[in-house]
């Protein structure tokens, strides 16, 4: 048995089995979020792909790779989205180094 099985992605909808009301509300909200709005559905798919890499969810990466392709995004755009994720992740580590620097300066002569 593996912790992640690609077949499990198809069972996502089954989460309502243990908590129907909350599950249904979640899926309704989810559907609404990804509709064409101020952002296009393609832009939303690219954001979702970047976030999927940030949260390192293999299900979401599979799902939003297909979704990006369906919505007309190309490989270059998809990789740029992942770089945005990487830049924010790397940046968030590095920006905390200011705290480290502050502390160093405080406790050293």
């Amino acid at each position: 048995m593996n912790y992640y099985e690609s077949e499990d992605l198809k069972k996502f909808g089954n989460i309502t089995e243990f908590q129907e009301k909350m599950g249904n509300k979640f899926f309704e909200y989810y559907g609404e979020v990804f509709k064409e709005g101020a952002l296009t559905a393609r832009e939303k798919a690219l954001i979702a792909l970047a976030v999927a890499h940030t949260v390192q969810c293999p299900y979401c990466i599979d799902a939003y790779t297909s979704d990006c392709l369906s919505k007309g995004a190309d490989e270059e755009q998809m990789m740029e989205a992942v770089h945005v994720s990487a830049a924010i992740r790397g940046g968030s580590s590095l920006v905390h180094s200011v705290q480290m620097m502050n502390q160093v300066k405080k406790v050293t002569m």
Binding site: A41, R42, S70, K71
Partner: peptide, 12 residues
């Protein structure tokens, strides 16, 4: 994979 929404793809 399947094609996405035609109107959205046309705009793009």
């Amino acid at each position: 994979f399947l094609p996405g929404d035609q109107a959205g793809l046309q705009t793009e």
